[in-house]
């Protein structure tokens, strides 16, 4: 038998089996610990808040009485803010990332920009809130509106989107670029037709990670002075008469789900705490849906790239 003939090899194989086993056990333990923490959190939120989620909760404005309060203005606010944030941060971030990676000359200026963009990703979010309060709200006199909320969150996640875009663009094999330049493409054609489609899954992941971060942000929104009690909805973006869309909602005051949660948690009545837990669950659900959508898109993009 082999093991008798190759005792030294057999010893190495046995040792490597032990090594692999140790690492596998370690890995599973760590994974289970992480999952357990998450599961505990979710289970706790669910036991507190799941029963509170019903149609009344989703379609009511905040109220003095916990049982008749709802999160209508908060989820509408969050959705609209996310729209503004995505609309601003994704094109700007992707554009900047592509420029830095494909167009910008490589010298000390771009190095400085690169380091600073990475640093911006680590700036505490309340600093962005202060910037927005001083510049957008007072400096430009824009007030505490959905537009400003979306803008500050867009600023906040811009570095995340830029860094993700750069990474994704950089990981496109240089052979693809060479073959595109080889058939006579100019830089824009290379980027638009070949590099960007190949980088799309990575860019998308970065964008979703950024938006998932933005959806839970409270500090900058509080800093710019978002209201915590709103009993009306912003004007509808769609209307019956021409031109059928309007952008008045951008200038409307707003609240968002994390602020609503924060507000409820600081109340003494237990009923509001239940409301806060229910809001937390819904916020988690929204993030989950966003991530699920990203996974779905990525899967489809990968498939279409291969064919």
């Amino acid at each position: 038998m082999a093991d008798a003939l190759h005792t030294s090899e057999a010893r190495i194989v046995a040792a490597s089996r032990v090594q692999d086993m140790v690492f596998a056990v370690l890995g599973i333990t760590v994974l289970l610990m992480a999952m357990a923490v998450l599961a505990t959190l979710v289970a706790d939120l669910m036991s507190d808040g799941l029963a509170r989620i019903d149609q009344q909760f989703l379609t009511s404005f905040p109220s003095r009485r916990p049982e008749s309060a709802g999160i209508l203005s908060a989820w509408v606010g969050t959705t609209l803010i996310m729209l503004v944030t995505a609309f601003l941060a994704i094109p700007l971030g992707v554009g900047a990332g592509i420029y830095l990676e494909e167009y910008a000359p490589k010298h000390w200026m771009t190095d400085v920009i690169e380091i600073n963009v990475s640093n911006l990703a680590g700036v505490p979010s309340i600093i962005y809130g202060l910037l927005a309060l001083g510049f957008f709200v007072y400096g430009l006199g824009m007030g505490q509106t959905i537009l400003v909320g979306g803008m500050v969150l867009a600023l906040l996640i811009l570095p995340i989107v830029i860094v993700a875009t750069r990474e994704a663009v950089r990981s496109v094999p240089s052979g693809l670029r060479e073959s595109a330049y080889g058939v006579g493409c100019n830089r824009w054609q290379v980027v638009w037709r070949y590099v960007l489609p190949a980088a799309r899954p990575g860019i998308l992941t970065g964008a979703i990670v950024g938006l998932s971060r933005a959806i839970g942000e409270t500090a900058p929104i509080i800093t710019i002075g978002a209201l915590t009690f709103i009993a009306f909805l912003p004007p509808s973006p769609i209307q019956a008469t021409a031109p059928f869309v309007n952008f008045d909602w951008l200038n409307s005051p707003f609240t968002v789900m994390p602020i609503q949660m924060f507000n409820w948690i600081s109340r003494p009545q237990a009923g509001f705490h239940v409301n806060a837990a229910a809001t937390g669950l819904l916020l988690l659900l929204m993030t989950l849906v966003m991530n699920g959508f990203a996974i779905f898109l990525r899967y489809h993009l990968r498939r279409s790239l291969r064919s």
């Binding site: 082999a2 190759h6 090899e9 057999a10 190495i12 194989v13 490597s16 089996r17």
Partner: peptide, 10 residues
Amino acid sequence: QIDPIMVRLL
């Protein structure tokens, strides 16, 4: 039954 690691050692 033979570990692939063993094969690659040989």
